[in-house]
Design a binder for these strands. Structure first.
Lengths: 156, 156
DNA sequence: GCAGATGGTTTCAATTTGAAACCATGGACG
DNA sequence: CGTCCATGGTTTCAAATTGAAACCATCTGC
């Protein structure tokens, strides 16, 4: 599997590989994170992230091509376009929240954990978990990849 | 925030940023994914991923330094070391599962979804969600970052 | 019309990557 | 013992990617 060969990657059937190909580099993920905080404009991304402008431009285009962001031409002052999360982009919320919680638990060990709250009730959100059909949490070793589908789809 | 400045990044209090700094590049995440499938040896990672050997070596060392993998000197044939997931590494299971499900849902739209099953019951696992204190799913806009903590910790 | 803000592109040096060659160690086998 | 081969690295060097800065284009406000 060659990371730089688009055709080969497009044949790749591991969902993680495919996902990482679309959004799995530092800046793309940081941009999505920033977008989830409400940032929409080129210069706002640039200042918030401290990213080089050519790289920002490149990543925004990639994310638009991937359908994660939408480039919206606003009619407002200056005709500045906005970059807004699509449904697909918003759906990364779960993965990024899991990542945030992982970082809180394993890296920022000396700080107050879990500042994420339900806006409505004000109560903290639960740690994200993988649950079985009954809602019981599953660990890595309790999960398997379906044999048939795995073979058919050349997983992992 | 300069991505290449270790000191500055170490001050960074966004858990996502910190997490991405430790494991947020293509190969590191692919290696962790591969390790979750049971791969442990240098050459097995190399063949499974098609990664250059020097890069693999570099990433394995980084992951060991980050405490995501453990380098275990085995007594077996050839004294070949093994790289095994630590508790911290296994804990990435949730985030990677969320990413896999995202890829299944939004990229591999033409294929059978969700090959992940509970090994015990054989039933498919649920889609990972962010849940409130009562176990109700929360979307991006229903979640907020706690004001006080955000200010104290200079979040996001 | 002119200055400033904003969104982008170009340019070029510095860093990172990847392929291949090289090295070192530990069996296996004759 | 000596040779071969597998494995886990390291080194080397060309090619790709990144990042800082300069440049360009459009729109606003004055």
């Amino acid at each position: 599997m060659n990371r730089k060969d688009p055709a080969a990657l497009h044949e790749e059937c591991c969902a993680i590989t495919r996902a990482l190909t679309q959004i799995g580099d530092w800046w793309s993920l940081m941009i999505v994170r920033e977008a989830m905080l409400g940032t929409r404009r080129f210069s706002d991304f640039q200042q918030a992230l401290g990213i080089a402008r050519n790289i920002l431009c490149n990543r925004l285009n990639r994310l638009v091509d991937a359908g994660v962001l939408n480039r919206v031409e606003t009619d407002e002052a200056g005709r500045r376009p906005e970059y807004r999360l699509t449904e697909k982009g918003r759906d990364l919320f779960v993965a990024l929240t899991a990542l945030r919680q992982w970082g809180d638990k394993w890296i920022l060990t000396d700080r107050p954990p879990l500042a994420l709250r339900d806006r409505h009730s004000g109560r903290p959100v639960r740690p994200v978990q993988v649950l079985d059909a009954d809602g019981e949490p599953l660990s890595l070793h309790q999960v398997m990849i379906d044999e048939d589908e795995a073979v058919n789809a050349r997983l992992p």
